[in-house]
Write a protein that binds this DNA or RNA. Sequence first.
DNA 1: CCTCGCTGCGAAAGCGCTTGCGCATCCTGT
DNA 2: ACAGGATGCGCAAGCGCTTTCGCAGCGAGG
Lengths: 348, 348
Amino acid sequence: MNGPSNDGARSVRRRRIGIKDVAKAAGVSITTVSHALSGKGRLTDETRERVRRVADDLGYTPHPVAQSLASGRTGMIAVVVSLPGNAPIAFTQIDYYVALINAATRTAVGRGYALVVAPSTSGPATWGRLPLDGVIVIDPADGDPTLPMIRGRGVPIVFVGRDPNGLPDDLVVENDRASATRSVLDHLVDAGARTVALMGLRTFESFTEDALAAHTAWSEERGREPLVHAVDADSTASAGEFRAGALSLLASDDRPDAVFCLYERQAVELLAAARETGVDVPAEMLVATIAEMGLAASSHPGLTTLELNQDELGVAAASLLIDRLEGRPAASVRDVPTTITIRGSTRR
Amino acid sequence: MNGPSNDGARSVRRRRIGIKDVAKAAGVSITTVSHALSGKGRLTDETRERVRRVADDLGYTPHPVAQSLASGRTGMIAVVVSLPGNAPIAFTQIDYYVALINAATRTAVGRGYALVVAPSTSGPATWGRLPLDGVIVIDPADGDPTLPMIRGRGVPIVFVGRDPNGLPDDLVVENDRASATRSVLDHLVDAGARTVALMGLRTFESFTEDALAAHTAWSEERGREPLVHAVDADSTASAGEFRAGALSLLASDDRPDAVFCLYERQAVELLAAARETGVDVPAEMLVATIAEMGLAASSHPGLTTLELNQDELGVAAASLLIDRLEGRPAASVRDVPTTITIRGSTRR
DNA sequence: CCTCGCTGCGAAAGCGCTTGCGCATCCTGT
DNA sequence: ACAGGATGCGCAAGCGCTTTCGCAGCGAGG
C-alpha cells in the first residue's frame, strides 16, 4: 500500500501513464509494447519479458476505451432479465435467475469477458452508452420495450428462452419444455393421479404456451379433457392473486387430484390454500411445480419440482454468445435437459 | 424497421452508420453534426433541427466507445458490494443492498449515467476492462482484495460505509452509527429493559466497531458493565453459527433482558432459540435488530428494527459521486439519518 | 469607408490504443 | 557466395468521435 511518493510537488492530478511512457522507458516502439503485452506479433521472449516488466514497474494498465475503439471489441457482455418493471418481485429474489446469472458470469470471466447485469428497467441511457460486444436476454417477454432497443444495438444476442416475437435465426438456449412438461405429467400419473390439471397464468408467455400445448396434447393422447386452471393475472401476480386462484381451483366441481403449477409461488399458495380448506396433500391431491425461488424444499410438504438446470443454462448462454463473438461456428439453438426432484407433495 | 435495402448485393454485414454518414446526408461537416446533437457550438436552430432529423432518419446512434475516448468520460459508474466471496448468501438476497442499489440506479440514470452492478467476486478481468467514470463501493470490508484494484483505477470512489483502511478524504455516505446505536439502546430501556446486551460478530467490520464503541460508552454512562456477546464468526456466518451463539447467550448466567442484534439473521435465530428454550419474547427478553433482509416484519413476534434508510443512502451515494465527477463542490461525507420501527419484539 | 465584434460553420488535431505491412537483418540450403 | 525465407521490430494509418480555433460574412458604430 506504499506506492511511489517521491514525485516532487504533490501531484495535482498525475497524468495517466500510457503505452507511450512504457515504450519510452523500455526503449522500444509502442507497437512493440502493444505486441509484448497482448502476446501477438513477433518478438523475442526476452524483449517481451522486458517490456512486461517495465510496464509492471510503471504500473501501466491499458486504457480500456482506447483499446476497444482500436480493436473493435470491448470484452463486455450484458445480461438482462426481461421482467415487467412493475413486478412485485425483483429478479434478484428469484433463485433461478440469480443462479443462472452467476453461472454465466463465471463462464464469461473464465473466457476473458466482463459480464454486467443491467437493470431490467434500463432505458436508452443505459443501452445507448454501454459499450457491449453482446447481450444475453433472459426470459424475453412479449412486448418488453427494451427488446427493440437491445436488438437495435446490432450486437449478437443470446436468448434464454425463445423471444415470442423473435426471428428464426435467433441464438437461443432453452429447455425442451414440451418433453419437460410431459415428464412431470407422467410422474404425476405414476404417483397415482387420475386427473391432472395445469395451473398457469392467463397472460401467456412463450414458456407458458409451450407447457399448455404439451399438456393439451398429452391429455388428448389419453382421451381426457385437458384441465387447465389459469389464474387471471400475468407473471407479476401477487401472492393474493395466486391464493384466490388456488381457492377457486379447490372449490371447483371437477377438482383434479393432481396439479402441475407453472409458477413456484403458485404452488406454495396452493399448498397453503389446501391446508386451509382441509384438502390433504399428497393424499387427496398431488402437487408439482417448477423450481424458481428455492421455496420448494422448505414448504410442507416439500414440493416436487421440475428443475430447469439454471447453471447449465447460464453456462450454455455465455458460451454460445462468446463462441459467436469469436467467430466460432455453433448451433444456434441449444437444448438443456431438465430433471425432476421428487418430494413429499407427490409421494403417497 | 424497414431500413435502406437497395445497397446492391445483400449486405453481408451492413456497416454501422456513423457521424460521417449523417454529415454527408445533411450536407454539413461532422463538427456541425456533433454540435447539433450535443447542443454545443454555435448553430442556428434551423440547422440544429435539420441535422437532428437527418440523424433520426438514418437511425444514427453515436458510437459510445469513440465518444468516450474523445470526451474522456464514459457515463458509466459501477457499484460493487464488498462481501467476502465465500459468503453463504449473495448480496442479491439482502433487501438492504438491493434497495440501496435500486435507488442509486434510479438516481444515476436520472442524471444521465448508466450504472452497472459488478459481481463482488470480479477480478482484474472486470476491473481492468470496465470503462468507468466512478465507482460506488458498498460496505467496504477489511481485507477485500478488490478494493486495491478499484482504487488503482484512479477514478473517484464513493463508499457507503467507511473503508476501515480508507483515507481521510475518501468520499463517504453513511449512517451516524453511534447515535443510531444509542437510539436503539434507549428504546430498549424505555421499553422496560434493565440490562441490554449487544450481539455482534467476532471479526469486526467498521460498522460493528462503531456500534460496539457506542454501546460501551452508553453502558458506562449508566454505570453498567457493557454486556457484549460476540458470535465467533464473520459476516459470512451460517444460520447454525448464529443459532449456537444465541443458545449460548440464553444459557449464560447473566442473561440480559434485552438484546440488540447487529445482524438480522442473528436476531431471527435468537428468536427461534428463545422459543425453543422457553424464553418468552418480549415478556422475558426484548430483541431489536437492524433491518437488512426484510425478515423482521414476518417473524414471530415481529422484530423491532433500526432502519438504515437504504434508499436515501443509495440516492446520496450516486448524487455525491456524480457531483464529484462533474466538478460540483460537495461535502466529502454525508450522514443519512436512521429511524426505528417498533414491532412486537420490544412491545410489552 | 474602415474597423470591430458577432455569428455560423468547418478544418484539423487529437483521445490511446491495435494492426497491416514494410524494412532490415540473420539464417539456411545449395 | 548468393537467393530466399524466417525473424525482430517499427511506421503510420486508422478506430469514430469531441473540441479548439480560425475563417469568412455581416451589421453596426465611428
